[in-house]
Each structure stands twice: as C-alpha cells, then as structure tokens.
Design a protein around this nucleic acid. Structure first.
Lengths: 237, 237
DNA sequence: CGGCCATTTGAAGGAAGTCAAGCGTAGTGG
DNA sequence: CCACTACGCTTGACTTCCTTCAAATGGCCG
C-alpha cells in the first residue's frame, strides 16, 4: 500500500513503544502471513470463540452492534496498526462483531512472550483502545451533532498521523456518510447537513473521500477535545 | 454491608473464575488493608499516574468526564468486585477520573503473578468491563430514553446479582436521577419523566432508592438486550 | 445510455432539552 | 416542637435538535 516507507501498521506500533530488532523481525515475519478480506466481510463474530489476535495491516474495520429492528451502532473504528481480538482470559469470546468497512489486509499479531518491547506496544495499544472507547461514550452522550463530527475527525486525524497516513493536513476517509452516521449515533441525513454546515463555516474541506481540517487546534479547543495519554513514558501513547 | 455471607467483591470474583484456597487467602489478606473514601472524592484522576490496581469492596463509583462548559458524562459505573486502574503498560496514566458516588470501601487488588486462577478472574473482569463499555456506546448511540433506562437497569441487576447484591427481584440503587442522567446522556428532567412513564406502564417499581424490575426477561426482550458473554469456560462471565 | 449508489434538499413531526416553579422530606438549629 | 434549609423529585410551557419520509441530484462504471 504505502510506497517506500515502512508499513503504517508497524510504524504505528513502533511509535507506541520503542521496538528492537527482534520485535521488528517478528512483525515483518508476521506480515508475510498477511491475508486479504473484502469489504463487508467479518473479521470476528460476536459470541464466537476467538482464535488468535490479528493486526490490521491496511484498510478500515469497525466493531459493530446490530439491534433487532435494524438499527446499527459502530462502537469503534479499527485502523492500520490496530489490534483485533487481543484478550487474556481462557477461551475468549468476541464481545463484538468486527466487520471490514473497506478491503482489509490483516496478519497475525506476533506473540510477545519473549519480546517485552512488543508487549509494551501491545499494552499501550490496548490502553489507547480503551481511551477511544471512553471518548466515544462522551461523544455520543454529551456532544451535539456538529461537535461529534468534529471530535471524530480530530481523533481520526490523530490516529492516522501516528500510522503515517496523513499528508498535507488531510487524510483519506473511506467511509460513506451512512457509516459515519452509525458511528456517531445520528442519521445520515443529519450528518450530511452538519458536514455542509462545517464546510460553509470553513472548518473542514471534504471532497472525494479526502478530508482536510482547516485549523485542528482551533477546532479541538472549540469542542474541548484532549488527545488521550495512556503512559508517562517518553514514547508517545 | 452484607451480613453473614462472603464479601460481595470476593463473591463476584470467585464467580468469574473458580478460585482456589491461595487465591482466597490473597484476597482476604488484601481486604484487611481496606480503606474508606467518602462520596464525591476521587479514586483516580485523569492524566495522573496510576500506582496500583484497587478492588471495590463496597459502594458505587463512576468513571466520569467533565466538559469545559460543565456538561458531565459518566462512562461506566464501578460496583463491588470491580477493579480500578488495572493496566499493563509501563507507567500507566489514568484515562479517566474515577469518583465515588457513595461512600466507597476499596482495597488493593492482590498481584496475580503466582495465582493463575486469580489472573483468570481479573482477565474475565476486564473483558466484562470492555463489554459493558461497548453496551454503553450502543445505549447512548441508538436507544431512546426509555430503552436506555431499561437497558441500564437490566445491566445493573445482572451485575449486582453476580455480587450477590440483589434480593427479591430488586436491588438498591443509590443514585440520584441527576447522576443517572449523566450516565444515560440525558437530562434529569427527562429521566424523571421516563421513569414515571415506566412506573405507570408497570415495568418497574422504584421507591426510596430501591428498584424492582417487574419482568426482567420481558423487558430485555423488548429492548433487544443480550447479557455479554466473554468466555466459553463453564464459570459464567 | 442506464443503473446504482451516495449525496443533497425539503417539509413536517417527534423526542429530548431548557427554564422555572412547586412539592416533599430529611436534617438542623433555635 | 416548629421554623428553616437543602436537596431531590415532580410538573408545565416552550424551544431546539434531530429524525422521518420522500424526492431530486450527481457521479461512476459497465
């Protein structure tokens, strides 16, 4: 996918904790076992037993819950470098369905038993996952539609930057407004109206799946957003 | 609190994974180091470094986030037997403030290095925590006010039952409607109206902090609620 | 060109919020 | 014993935000 640089997935992990040569070797070896999954297919099914943790190499996935009457909620988005199905209890069951939103490439997440730095990266990644779940809760519970959109875009910008997937202040957003609405607890109609409003107000540029935040810091200040920090170690997290 | 039986906290953990004598010994020894915290005081402050994980022995706490303009969101509730501040990354920072909603008794969560069963119980507990965060997201994103209240009450009933804190189909709910509203992403006025509606419809009894669900199974079916399962092991989870 | 899907727009309705006041009750102090 | 207070619950009138339903527009690809 990315030409020239390292895989965004590995880049991200190496930024969560400093990785050593054996860590990188394990990751690149895992990458050789990569598999492709088409959009709309499931990586994990809620209630089914989880086999082994996987790493998203490229593409976007989502943890979704479907209500009996067809309502759908996207609980979190999984981006390149994110882990899927990482748990420590015996015979774990998936607590949510994970579905590919785009074509997704994934590979095994190498076991970290004898790789303490990789284990740290996993731990930081998991802590960040939790932090983003908490943000999602606050977003849905206490922000209005415009704030929700801005907040989510800021989060995505931040996460994609960590994986080296932003450029010139913008990023590729391969989601329909329908999907966005399911993530934001809104209807696609209302998402559309608010996006247009934000365009008119000059907060965002958004054309052909590419989003540019005009002034991220200002936007963040306006909606009171704080990027999560999960470790006091120097390496970001 | 509980007369005669084992501590609700220990009861809960022992139900998440079968505990052996040394596990119980570690827990009872930890209980002797219990400390009391008054309502409204913080157990953990967002962004501050976490020292050691703690176990809620009695009382209710909440993970909260405060917005700059005073809006407040309760992201999750912590009940007896729940763990606080459990993470594996080096030098972890708290991702949320945890505040006591009632007077709370807490004690150290004993290290599980050489206690595999206790480690299992912790892992299951953490997986359940995540599952409840996901439920909270769906609740806020896709349920209407009445459904949210019913769904939360069902969750609490379920969790309190695990700790042996329910009786005669009901339980003690030491929360004001204001606090409930902050957990449900609503206003206290609207929570009040909906509670009265549910009372009139015969779904719940609610008087003097005591709640009784008239027909939990029926209610659960009506709002499409499924209790989370996180492990395929026989011991519940 | 035609079909399909995502986006856009309009009009109308409904769920939840806001503001403000009235109760009820438990606790406090004279 | 009775103000007096404080806090949580309750109610009413009005507003706002978001949804619903329906149709139109626009782009992309076979």
């Amino acid at each position: 996918m990315a030409e020239g640089g390292p895989s965004p997935a590995i880049l991200r992990l190496s930024r969560l904790a400093p990785l050593t040569t054996p860590d990188m070797a394990a990751l690149t070896s895992a990458l050789s076992e990569r598999r492709e999954l088409r959009a709309h297919r499931e990586l994990l099914a809620e209630g089914r037993e989880i086999s082994a943790p996987r790493l998203i190499v490229s593409g976007w996935a989502a943890r979704v819950r479907l209500l009996t009457d067809g309502r759908r909620q996207i609980m979190s988005l999984s981006l390149p470098g994110d882990l899927i199905g990482m748990c420590r209890q015996p015979r774990p069951l998936a607590v949510s369905t994970v579905v590919a939103l785009t074509d997704v490439v994934h590979c095994p997440a190498p076991a970290a038993h004898s790789l303490p730095h990789l284990a740290d990266a996993y731990a930081v990644s998991q802590a960040l996952d939790e932090a983003y779940l908490l943000s999602q809760i606050t977003r849905l519970g206490r922000l209005n539609a415009e704030e929700r959109i801005g907040d989510l875009l800021l989060e995505l910008h931040e996460r994609l930057t960590l994986a080296g997937l932003t450029d010139r202040g913008g990023f590729n957003l391969p989601l329909t407004q329908e999907v966005l609405a399911d993530a934001l607890g809104l209807t696609s109609v209302h998402v559309n109206r608010m996006i247009q409003l934000m365009r008119r107000e000059g907060d965002i540029e958004w054309k052909a799946r590419r989003v540019i935040l005009r002034d991220p810091e200002m936007l963040a200040r306006r909606i009171g957003r704080m990027p999560p920090r999960v470790t006091a170690e120097k390496g970001r997290g």
